[in-house]
Simulated scan of single mutants.
Amino acid sequence: MATIGLDKLYYSKITEDSNGEETYSTPLVLAKAITAELSVELVEAILYADDGAAEVVKDFNSGTLTLGVDDIGPTAAADLTGASTDDNGVLISASENVGTPVAVGFRAKKANGTYRYFWLYRVKFGLPATNLQTKADSITFSTPTIEGTVMRRNKLDAFGKHPWKAEVTEGDAGVASATITGWFTEVYEPVYTPVP
């Protein structure tokens, strides 16, 4: 079903242990969401045999998340891009700044009134783009965009795989209400029942 809205844009700082496995902090509001565009890049390998394709493998390589937001405050800018705030409260961006990966969560409203929820487990953002325009005969809002590379996380799930995204639709069969109500209180961790 098509989506007709976007809101609840959160991020969670990542701490890595000595093995590089991620632990997520309590999610924080990133900004008010205007747009979110996620594109995915796959790695493809084709094995040819007997004059045709015998095997095709397509794996997740990376993705690009482009966010249009109302404003990126100094705290979120520092967490996402590595910028710092000086003693006078001025956000300072330096050429040496390197942001650390964060998890990003949001939800999209569907036409039937329910929501589809997302967590991207590891996103590394670049510097936000700023578009400014003089006021003329009409008022045009200028808002920042920020682009990040979506990567798989280092932490393995119960099947020995590296998740890169969690997605759930409110009201789908098997979706517990606690999953939806707790979606933005912490970054969602996959839950699997052990197979005997």
Rank of each mutant, 00 (worst) to 15 (best):
Ala94Trp: 01
Ala83Gln: 03
Ala78Trp: 06
Thr134Ser: 15
Lys135Ser: 14
Ala158Phe: 06
Lys165Ile: 00
Pro190Ala: 12
Arg107Thr: 09
Pro196Arg: 09
Thr3Asn: 09
Val40Phe: 06
Gly68Met: 03
Lys161Pro: 01
Thr23Asp: 11
Thr130Trp: 05
Lys109Met: 10
Leu156Phe: 03
Leu47Met: 13
Val102His: 01
Gly89Gln: 09
Gly126Thr: 05
Asp79Gln: 13
Val187Pro: 01
Val56Cys: 07
Leu80Ala: 03
Lys135Asp: 13
Glu170Thr: 08
Glu170Ala: 08
Thr114Lys: 14
Leu156Gln: 02
Ile92Pro: 04
Pro128Gly: 10
Thr66Asp: 02
Asn19His: 08
Asp79Ser: 12
Leu42Ser: 11
Ala76Arg: 12
Glu21Lys: 14
Asp59Ile: 15
Leu30Lys: 08
Thr23Cys: 07
Ile46Leu: 15
Ile180Cys: 11
Gln133Ala: 15
Gly160His: 04
Val43Ile: 11
Leu132Phe: 02
Ala76Leu: 11
Gly182Gln: 01
Ala45Asp: 12
Leu156Cys: 00
Trp183Val: 02
Gly63Trp: 03
Gly182Ile: 02
Trp164Tyr: 15
Asp172Ala: 12
Trp183Phe: 14
Asp51Ala: 13
Glu41Gly: 06
Val175Phe: 03
Ala136Leu: 11
Tyr24Cys: 05
Pro144Val: 00
Lys124His: 05
Gly171Lys: 11
Glu167Gly: 03
Thr149Met: 03
Thr140Arg: 10
Leu65Gln: 12
Val168Met: 09
Asp79Val: 13
Ile34His: 07
Asn112Pro: 05
Ser84Met: 08
Val123Trp: 00
Ala36Arg: 06
Ala33Val: 09
Gly105Thr: 06
Ile46His: 13
Ala45Asn: 13
Gly20Ala: 10
Gly52Arg: 13
Gly171Asp: 08
Thr149Ala: 02
Lys165Gly: 01
Lys58His: 03
Val191Gln: 15
Phe159Asn: 11
Thr66Ile: 02
Val57Trp: 07
Ala136Lys: 13
Gly52Lys: 14
Ile4Phe: 00
Thr85Phe: 01
Thr149Leu: 01
Phe60Cys: 07
Ala166Glu: 00
Leu127Ile: 08
Gly99Val: 01
Ile46Pro: 08
Ile4Gly: 00
Phe159Gly: 06
Glu96Thr: 15
Pro128Thr: 05
Gln133Val: 09
Ser177Glu: 13
Glu37Gly: 00
Val90Phe: 06
Ala2Lys: 05
Asp172His: 09
Asp87Gly: 14
Thr169Cys: 04
Gly148Cys: 07
Val43His: 08
Ile4Thr: 04
Gly174Glu: 12
Leu9His: 01
Thr181Ser: 15
Leu80Val: 00
Ser142Leu: 02
Asn112Cys: 06
